[in-house]
C-alpha cells in the first residue's frame, strides 16, 4: 500500500461532540498528553498539492511526518467532510481539493 501522510485535526469538546453524534468518536486517538486527534490521510500527490495551495503549511519531516500549520478554516472544512464521508482516508482530501476547484 502506498505511503500516506496525515493531517492532524485536534479535537476540542465541540469537535468531539460532533464525532460522537456521528458515531465516529473511535476515530479520535490519544496523541500527546491526552490530546485527542483525528488523522486524515493524504496521498503523496495530495500532500504536494496541499503544500502548494497553502504555503504557510509545513510537512514536519523531523518528528511527526505530518502536514501541519494549515489554517483553522481549512481544518474545519476537512473535519466537516470527514463527518460527511465517515472516513479519514484519502477520499476526504479528494473531496476537499475538488471543493477548491
Amino acid at each position: 500500500m502506498a505511503e500516506t501522510y496525515p493531517i492532524n485535526i485536534w479535537i476540542n469538546e465541540e469537535r468531539f461532540e460532533k464525532l460522537k453524534a456521528a458515531n465516529l468518536a473511535d476515530m479520535a486517538v490519544d496523541r500527546l498528553g491526552g490530546m485527542k486527534v483525528i488523522q486524515v490521510q493524504c496521498t503523496e500527490k495530495q500532500k504536494d498539492k496541499i503544500l502548494k495551495l497553502f504555503p504557510m503549511a509545513k510537512f514536519d519531516t523531523a518528528t511527526t511526518k505530518s502536514i501541519e500549520l494549515l489554517p483553522r478554516e481549512v481544518k474545519d472544512k476537512i473535519f466537516d467532510i470527514t463527518l460527511k464521508l465517515k472516513s479519514i482516508g484519502p477520499e476526504v482530501m479528494d473531496e476537499f481539493l475538488k471543493s477548491l476547484d
Binding site: N8, W10, M35, K58, D60, A62, T64, E68
Partner: peptide
Amino acid sequence: SGTLIRSI
C-alpha cells in the same frame, strides 16, 4: 514537537 504544539 514545536510544530505539533503550534498546530494545536
